[in-house]
Simulated scan of single mutants.
Amino acid sequence: MNATPQHSQEAAARAANSRLVRDFGLLIKSATRLEQRIDSALRRECGISHTMLEVLIRLCRRPGEEVSQRQLADDLTLTSSGTTRLIDRMEEAGLVRRVPSPGDRRVALVEPTTEGLRAFLQAAAVHANVVEEYFVKPLTADAYTRMTSALGEIDKALRAETT
C-alpha cells in the first residue's frame, strides 16, 4: 500500500518536528552562535580567529611538549591540508614556527613564538569573557554543573564508539 502525498508530508512534518531533532538543533545552533561570538570578539580584539586560538591552546597546554602538525589536525578535527594552510597563516603572522622533529626529520613540529604566547594570553582573556557572558551567566550554578557533566558523558560515549 503506497502512502498518499498528504500522509508522507504529515509524516515528514512529524519527523522534522520531533523532540530529538529539535533538541539536537538547539544544541548545534547554540554552539554555532557561541563560536561566532567568540570568533568575532577574537578577530576584533586580538586579530586572530577562534581556530587559531584553538591551535595556541593546544600548543600551550603542556609546556615543552612536542606537537606535530598531524597531532594538531587530529586534536582539532581538521584535515591535513587545512591544518597546513592554517599553520602557514599563523607562521606568517609570527604566532608559531615549524621546527624539525629531532626524532624524525620528516615530521614538522609546531611551537608558539614569543608573539604567539602574547597573543594567546590576550585571546584567552577575550575568550573567557565571552564564554562567561553567554555560556555560564545564563544558567544557575547547578544548571551549569549539570550541563557540563552531561556534555562530558556525551563526549565519553562518542569517544568510546570510535575506539
Rank of each mutant, 00 (worst) to 15 (best):
H50K: 06
M52V: 09
L53T: 06
L53H: 02
E54F: 11
E54A: 15
V55F: 02
I57W: 08
I57D: 14
I57M: 12
R58Q: 13
R58V: 12
R61A: 12
R61N: 08
R62F: 12
P63Q: 04
E65H: 08
E65P: 04
E66Q: 13
E66A: 14
E66Y: 08
V67W: 03
S68V: 13
Q69R: 07
Q71W: 00
L72C: 05
D74M: 08
D74Q: 12
T77K: 07
L78S: 01
S80V: 13
S81G: 03
T84G: 05
L86F: 03
L86W: 06
I87T: 03
M90T: 03
E91N: 14
E92D: 14
A93S: 14
A93W: 00
A93I: 08
A93V: 00
G94R: 09
R97M: 15
R97G: 09
R98S: 10
R98Q: 02
V99G: 07
S101T: 03
D104I: 01
R106H: 05
R106W: 04
V107I: 10
A108T: 04
A108K: 04
L109V: 02
V110L: 02
V110N: 02
E111G: 03
P112Y: 00
P112E: 09
T113M: 08
G116T: 04
A119W: 00
L121M: 10
A123H: 01
A124E: 15
V126S: 00
A128D: 15
A128V: 10
A128T: 12
V131T: 10
E133I: 14
Y134T: 06
F135E: 14
V136E: 10
L139Q: 12
A141D: 15
D142K: 01
A143L: 10
Y144W: 00
S149A: 14
L151R: 04
L151C: 08
